[in-house]
């Protein structure tokens, strides 16, 4: 067998290979521990970069930005706030020259700290459905059990967790959307990897009229929908594919 070079291995991790090449690497992984370690490392880089920036999706959009997308009205043709730059103006950073040094933290680190804080607050109230590991959040307890076992095709109205869509993401992991039914109601995306179900997104969810969250994709909070859109290649699983994926351990 030919050795697997870095470009091919990376393409495998990023979901860029076609079926024969995927099968070739899958077969090699069965007996090649060094290759398996390289795959884990490449996946870890992707997962950590995503975990550093995905929390931005949860942040409220600053009013000065959303104001630019409001329909023009006679009174508000020119939104004026102290931070608005002139069109074609001086560029990035010129509005912040007097900013305190504390602001000049790399965005990734700051975003991550915001996410950790948010998850931490929520975790403390949610009966250990989430655990932190290496700066990332993972499913725990009842959430793990639901993600491992529950099928959207066999919904259980009394279960604490409702499962929505399941699909294979662009980087090869199987991901599932879920809704935690007990307050505070949360929706999120979980992706299965070596360390369990990582949670790239958790979002506040709004119960529908019956107090029950619909599971249709259209009902997902925007942040979760965006996370799904960013990962989805091809179609979501049908009932048969979902069951098959469960029976093979979500690999």
């Amino acid at each position: 067998m030919n050795p697997i070079d870095d470009d091919t291995l990376q393409a495998y991790v990023d979901g860029e290979l076609d079926a024969p090449d995927i099968a070739r690497i899958d077969a090699a992984l069965m007996h090649d521990d060094v290759l398996a370690r390289r795959v884990r490392q490449a996946r870890a880089v992707r997962a950590q970069v995503q975990a550093a920036f995905d929390p931005v999706l949860e942040e409220p959009v600053p009013a000065r930005l959303s104001a630019l997308l409001q329909p023009p009205s006679p009174q508000a043709a020119m939104p004026v706030t102290p931070r608005v730059l002139p069109v074609g103006g001086h560029g990035i950073g010129t509005t912040r020259r007097r900013a305190t040094r504390r602001w000049f933290v790399p965005g990734a680190a700051l975003a991550a700290s915001v996410a950790l804080l948010a998850v931490g607050l929520w975790w403390s109230r949610s009966g250990e459905m989430v655990r932190m590991q290496g700066g990332q959040s993972f499913a725990a307890g009842a959430l793990t059990r639901a993600l491992d076992k529950a099928l959207a095709s066999e919904p259980d109205a009394n279960a604490p967790v409702a499962i929505g869509l399941s699909f294979r993401s662009a980087d090869g992991q199987i991901c599932r959307t879920f809704v935690l039914r007990s307050p505070p109601v949360r929706a999120g995306l979980a992706c299965h990897g070596d360390a369990g179900w990582s949670l790239p997104v958790l979002s506040a969810a709004t119960p529908s009229e019956g107090g029950e969250l619909r599971q249709a994709a259209s009902a997902l909070p925007p942040a979760v929908q965006a996370a799904v859109d960013a990962r989805l290649r091809g179609d979501v699983f049908n009932a048969q594919q979902e069951r098959a994926a469960r029976d093979t351990g979500w690999r």
């Binding site: 999706l57 959009v61 602001w103 700051l110 975003a111």
Partner: peptide, 17 residues
């Protein structure tokens, strides 16, 4: 907007930039 902000954060690094 949320995805655009995420991309901008990844490019520019700092929140304000």
């Amino acid at each position: 907007l949320p995805r655009l902000r995420r991309l901008a954060r990844a490019l520019a690094g700092q929140v304000a930039d």
